[in-house]
Write a protein that binds this DNA or RNA. Structure first.
Length: 594
RNA sequence: GGGCUCUUAGCUCAGCUGGAUAGAGCACCUCCCUUCUAAGGAGGCGGUCUCAGGUUCGAAUCCUGAAGGGCUCACCA
């Protein structure tokens, strides 16, 4: 039983014995810094049941707690708030119980619990990854790690959108204007090369449209009948019918893209346990469309198209198969979901990391899967996140207004390098060690910048204003970690003993740190429940701020006596470890020096 | 037009299931490196929590409405 539960029971007992009233629950909050006390009981909600003056009620309960609860040292009442002071003994006991637990805050997966599959990234293979994908990747990866840390078994996956008209556009432009360029011949990353031809297609397509309009066609006609578009469409048909040339071109160019993506993923530090390709799954859903027709979940129109009527659920009618029998986007989503459960029978739910422009889509998808009768459909979650916008508005790859993922990662590292060199604290580091450190810091800044924001809020990113390295940032937290490591390197004495309140009293700053450490397991559980890395980021910031204040206000290695010194080193070490654990689930590394 | 969503300091964001005088960072202004790393610390300036009603002992938080922004409502993905 933790402290709050103990107090809750005792407060109920106090109210029962003095007022003869059974409270259902007791409300707590952290005591504000300006008042004495460690935890506060809010009296107001009790007034509904206990008639009387809140201050008097507070006094009564406070008295009871001091007399009956070992951990309670004293109390004071301010208005309707009962501030309770807790004895140092409690905090020493708590600290000793977690001191040597390396994975403090994390829960190991239970054998009998169902796994969760987390989908993220899921790019199209016609262009390189940009800042929007970066947010997606960081979020998905982090939520997967948070779920793991909270005690779930997790599979990371993605659905790679490797087919469709957009891919054919890149293919066609390459075939037409590419002069057999390859990543090798140009030195370009494969995804960049293919992306260039996607842009090239658009440019040439626009020229054709203009020419057609000049020759008297309407804009609409021109757009639909431009020869390039028609050829791209026929290429798609050839692909679907298995045309050898088209398929081998498709394989070659997608291969280039995958190589490029893998490099970006590696740089970003994200990974996947299993992959799904749209080209494998796009036909899958049709099987279940047929089944849904049989069971009456879907209905067929006269023209052969298949629909799902969701009007009774407050949504619209949704097409699930075209009149020509081909699959639409949602058809393959249905198939993919079912396939995943077949492949991984221990999976009991899925998380889809996809932008909020698809909120409606997922509402429909989940509802359809429920209607099809899948038990696991109730455990599907759309991790919906806001777009990353530029000051100029939306990023558009065809118009070249995107912030490229690789470029951004490089820029972050070089900014880190500039700052580091200016500060000049890295004597003795080899060039390789420095490079690795710059990457750690640069990526730390980028990842923290994105993850500290509530996923569902949109982010405005101004490329002209670089991401901060000071204040509430990744490097600030990394810096604190590095500082603690410096202390631990210098602490060449045995600090393994367990201390207690007879050995020393707690400094105010020490106690604040202990209280903050105490919150960590709860933060992980909360973040998992809410699918929000931002909660972990903000917690870590608070912890670090508290530590820095401690660090500048008391001497650690120069403490007055041996016990102070031992305890402060232990405490510092625990804070560092907690920073490391918290950053681990955010996918951010911590440096030994910086 | 229907649905969803957002609006907190000059800027970027916290604010847990309603609770004490709404908190941080950046920017601006003061201080603090002979002491464990100043990417730091201590303090100051800065708010009609978009607006109007309502519920409540108590509302940034819940409800209704309005304004402004975003997304969405394809036989696109």
């Amino acid at each position: 039983m933790n402290l709050q539960e103990t107090l809750s029971n005792q407060v109920k007992q106090a109210v029962l014995s003095t007022f003869n009233i059974q409270l259902e629950s007791v409300e707590f909050q952290a005591t504000r810094k300006e008042f004495a006390g460690d935890i506060t009981v809010v009296i107001f909600p009790m007034l509904r049941f206990v008639k009387g003056n809140p201050v008097q009620i507070g006094e009564t309960i406070g008295n009871y707690l001091v007399e009956n609860v070992d951990e309670v040292k004293a109390y004071n009442v301010v208005k309707g708030f009962l501030n309770v002071e807790i004895k140092d003994t409690y905090y020493f006991d708590f600290f000793n119980s977690i001191k040597d637990e390396e994975t403090y805050g994390f829960v190991s997966p239970k054998a009998d619990e169902k796994a969760i599959m987390v989908e993220y990234s899921s790019p199209n293979t016609n262009k390189p990854l940009h800042l929007g994908h970066v947010r997606n990747n960081l979020l998905g990866y982090s939520v997967a790690e948070i779920l793991k840390a909270s005690g779930k078994k997790v599979y990371k996956t993605q659905i790679i959108n490797d087919r469709g008209i957009h891919i054919c556009k890149s293919m066609l432009a390459w075939k037409r204007f590419g002069n057999n360029e390859t990543p090798e011949s140009t030195g370009l990353k494969g995804d960049k090369l293919v992306g260039n031809y996607y842009v090239k297609f658009d440019q040439e397509y626009k020229k054709e449209i203009e020419a057609l309009i000049a020759s008297g066609k309407t804009e609409d006609e021109a757009k639909k009948n431009a020869p390039l578009l028609l050829e791209a469409q026929s290429m798609l048909q050839k692909w679907e019918s298995g045309d050898e040339d088209v398929v081998s071109l498709w394989k070659m160019m997608n291969g280039w893209v995958y190589e490029g993506f893998n490099e970006t993923y590696k740089n970003l530090g994200v990974d996947f346990d299993t992959l799904y390709y749209e080209s494998d799954t796009y036909l899958l859903g049709k099987e279940f469309v047929a089944e849904g027709l049989k069971s009456g979940v879907f209905e067929k129109e006269a023209d052969g198209s298949v629909w799902c009527d969701l009007t009774e659920d407050g949504l619209d009618r949704k097409i699930v198969q075209r009149s020509d029998g081909t699959a639409v986007y949602i058809t393959q989503d249905i198939g993919t979901a079912i396939q995943r459960i077949k492949d991984f029978p221990d999976v009991g739910g899925m998380v889809y990391t996809v932008g909020n422009e698809q909120d409606y889509h997922f509402q429909v998808l989940f509802l359809i899967l429920k209607k099809l009768g899948f038990e696991w459909a109730k455990n599907l979650y759309h991790l919906s996140y806001g777009m990353v916008d530029l000051p100029s508005g939306k990023m558009k790859s065809r118009e070249g207004t995107v912030v490229d993922a690789d470029d951004l990662i490089d820029e972050m590292a070089s900014t880190a390098a500039e700052i580091s060199e200016e500060l000049g604290k890295l004597d003795g580091y080899t060039k390789e060690e420095k490079e690795a450190l710059y990457k750690t810091i640069g990526l730390g800044a980028l990842k923290y910048y994105i993850l500290k924001v509530d996923p569902k809020k949109r982010i405005l990113f101004d490329p002209k204003e670089s991401i901060d390295f000071q204040g509430n940032t990744g490097p600030f937290i990394q810096y604190t970690y590095a500082r603690i490591q410096a202390i631990l390197r210098k602490a060449d004495f045995d600090y393994s003993v367990n201390l207690s309140s007879v050995d020393k009293s707690l400094h105010e700053k020490e106690k604040e740190l202990l209280k903050q450490l105490e919150l960590f397991p709860e933060v992980i559980q909360n973040a998992a429940m809410q699918h929000s890395p931002a909660l972990v980021a903000n917690y870590t910031y608070d912890l670090v701020k508290e530590f820095n204040s401690f660090y500048q206000n008391v001497s650690i290695l120069g403490a007055d006596n041996e016990n102070e010194k031992i305890f402060r080193v232990q405490l510092s070490k625990k804070v560092a470890q907690t920073i490391k654990n918290a950053f681990h689930v955010l996918g951010i590394q911590v440096p030994e020096r910086m």
